[in-house]
Simulated scan of single mutants.
Amino acid sequence: MRFERVAEDNKGGLGETVRVVIHALLIAFVIRTFLFQPFNIPSGSMKETLLVGDYLFVSKFSYGYSKYSFPFSPNLFEGRIMGSVPNRGDVVVFRLPREPDVDYIKRVIGLPGDRIQMIGGQVHINGTAVPRERIDDFMDNEDGRQVRTRRYRETLPNGVSYTTLDLYENGFYDNTPVYEVPQGHVFVMGDNRDNSTDSRVLSQVGPIPLDHLIGRAQVLFFSIEEGERAWAFWRWPWSIRWTRFGTLVR
């Protein structure tokens, strides 16, 4: 009798463990689908705001939901549910229009109906130059050597301020024609202006349909030095960027 009772207790404990695991997976699925989804930064197009090796949470509810908000992008409905237009300066994750299975992250510069142009490396919105101020250089580590890059503080018409990098004088997209942002679209750019494939490159990105937005970048929860592997936990004391934990994305 005693052994039978022990067997029953073990069986009940196993069942409870399975239920807890299933509930945890369901909660994680709901959070990832409707609230927050983790992403990592694989390229330097958003330096210095976001660095290679940053891991961040993106709020899925910020601009409503489209088919791209859900795993496997099911065709359950058209357009967006509870949709809203991003603010200028928001850092957004979106699906690339020409490759809908590819995620990009950039900053919103232009809204529907805007006219955007680059003149001498400076953004112009509807014919007015966006103010930018030269600040101290950005110091980056490339192949073990320190590299200086010109850095500016740019302030959009709504007061949102952030830093941009200027790698080259008269870069390829420092002077552009006027881009007219279609209705239902936004114009996005990387903060690392000479190292970003963004809405200025019509053949690859162009203006982004609102339906392709996944969400707004909110907060960093992990960051590791470029070239390091996140799973190499034995190197964490030296490879992790501890000061970036909990940093808000602005």
Rank of each mutant, 00 (worst) to 15 (best):
G79V: 08
L210H: 04
I27P: 06
F77S: 13
V20R: 12
V108C: 04
I119F: 01
P131G: 01
D114I: 03
F34L: 15
H23K: 10
T49H: 00
I105D: 02
L26A: 14
A129L: 07
Y68C: 05
N192A: 05
I208N: 08
R115T: 11
F39T: 04
L26S: 12
L50H: 03
V186F: 02
R107G: 04
Q218K: 12
G121C: 11
S161L: 05
R80G: 02
L248Q: 09
L248F: 14
P86W: 02
R200P: 09
K67G: 00
L213G: 10
G113W: 07
I214Y: 01
V108G: 03
I81T: 12
D191G: 06
N87Q: 14
S69D: 04
T149R: 08
I81H: 10
Q117Y: 04
M139D: 00
D174Y: 03
I22E: 08
V181N: 01
N192G: 06
N195G: 02
T243F: 11
D137R: 11
N10I: 15
G89V: 09
G215Y: 08
S43Y: 04
A230M: 12
G190P: 08
Y179H: 15
T176N: 05
S43I: 06
R241Y: 11
R151S: 12
D143C: 00
G113F: 09
V249I: 15
S84C: 03
W238N: 12
P86L: 07
I125S: 04
Y168K: 12
E48Q: 12
T164A: 12
D54T: 05
T149A: 07
A232C: 00
F94W: 09
A28H: 02
T176Y: 02
W234E: 14
R19F: 11
F187H: 01
T176D: 06
S239D: 14
D198H: 08
R151T: 10
M1L: 10
E142K: 06
L35W: 13
L35D: 03
G110S: 05
L56E: 09
D174N: 11
P38W: 02
N158V: 10
Q117R: 15
R5P: 00
D90L: 01
G110D: 04
Y55F: 14
G79L: 05
T176C: 04
E4L: 15
A24V: 11
T17F: 13
V20H: 11
I119D: 11
